[in-house]
Simulated scan of single mutants.
Amino acid sequence: MNSIRVVIADDHRMIREGLKQLLELDGDIVIIGEAGDGIECLEQIETKKPDVLLLDINMPRMGGLKVLEKLKEMKSTTKVLILTIHNEIEYLLKAVEIGVNGYVLKDSESDLLRKAIFAVYGGETFIQPNMIPLLNEKLESREDMTSSENLLTKREMEVLRLITEGLFNKEIAYNLSISEKTVKNHVSNIFRKISVSDRTQAAVYAIKNNIVDVL
């Protein structure tokens, strides 16, 4: 597998240097650029086109959420993983609304960050598991769960629960003892039935409709 090309956007140089040393240890990830503010971050994305952007929320000149909005407007193919100190649910909700690919807290274990990077690079969505209860509490509008259960098959419900836990398709296949191709078919059917376009939206739908248990 080719190394995952990453740009780090954080206004603290020591954090950028520490992340670079940590993530490049085994060669699976290579840091191709760094940015200390939002404007510089957009320039790095435009010129270097990384696979994944590690994006802080609090940055000078342009904050991380605004950068995320700009990247969506630009239709950038770079996957965006927010890495922040903010565990307030409002930041996560806003990021999900804009279309973030992942959200991880800076006090997380390094293995969790690496898993998140590989997840978003592979087209998965990764929201830090211990943020899920906060997300669940904040979502006030809930639809009737019965209609969702009637809409999805039992197997699709199982797949949706595992999507919400941030599992890769391969991990879902292993957990359910089915092929990865079958998982992909289930995911496509789920997206179509609940009218969403990505795994983040599917996860939020599942939580909002009480389809998943609080982790």
Score class of each variant (00 low, 15 high):
G36N: 05
S177R: 15
A173I: 04
V204W: 08
L176R: 07
K72M: 13
V7C: 15
A206E: 05
A206M: 01
E40P: 07
K154F: 09
P129R: 13
I89K: 02
E109W: 04
V104K: 04
M1L: 14
D37W: 08
K49G: 01
E17V: 14
V159F: 04
A203Y: 04
R114L: 14
G64T: 11
S141R: 08
V30W: 00
I32K: 03
K106V: 12
K79N: 08
T47H: 10
N169T: 11
L22P: 03
P50L: 09
S110P: 06
S188K: 13
I98K: 08
V204I: 15
L81C: 07
A202W: 03
I117E: 04
E69W: 06
L25T: 14
L139A: 01
G122Y: 11
V67E: 02
N58V: 12
S141Q: 06
K170G: 05
H86W: 01
K20N: 11
M62D: 05
K70T: 12
A202R: 06
L135F: 00
E90D: 15
S179D: 10
M74F: 10
E40S: 15
E140M: 06
G27A: 10
I172F: 07
F168N: 07
M74L: 12
G33T: 10
I194R: 11
Q128G: 00
D51H: 13
L92I: 06
I39C: 03
D26Q: 09
L176P: 05
S3Y: 08
L160W: 02
L81F: 00
N175Q: 12
D28S: 15
L54R: 09
I29L: 11
T146I: 10
V214N: 13
I163S: 02
K115W: 02
D51Q: 00
I32L: 01
G166A: 02
K79H: 03
I8E: 05
G18S: 14
M74H: 08
A35D: 11
K70V: 13
N87V: 01
A35R: 07
L55Q: 09
V183A: 05
D28C: 06
N150D: 05
K66Y: 04
I82Y: 06
Y205R: 12
V104H: 09
K49W: 03
N150Y: 13
G33M: 10
I163R: 01
P60V: 12
L68R: 00
G64Q: 11
V214Q: 13
H12A: 11
V183I: 07
V104Y: 02
D11I: 07
E140N: 11
T125Y: 04
E46D: 10
I163C: 02
G27S: 05
Q21P: 01
K66L: 11
N150K: 12
K106H: 09
L134T: 05
D51K: 00
D56R: 07
I207V: 14
Q128R: 06
L176N: 03
H186I: 01
L83G: 08
I194C: 08
G99C: 10
E43L: 03
S179N: 07
P60G: 14
M14P: 02
P133Q: 13
S148Q: 08
T84P: 05
E143N: 11
G123K: 05
V196K: 09
E34P: 10
K48R: 14
N185S: 14
R142D: 00
I163K: 01
M14T: 12
I117C: 09
K72T: 08
I127F: 00
M14V: 14
I132Q: 01
Y103K: 03
Y91K: 03
M14W: 00
L65K: 02
R192D: 11
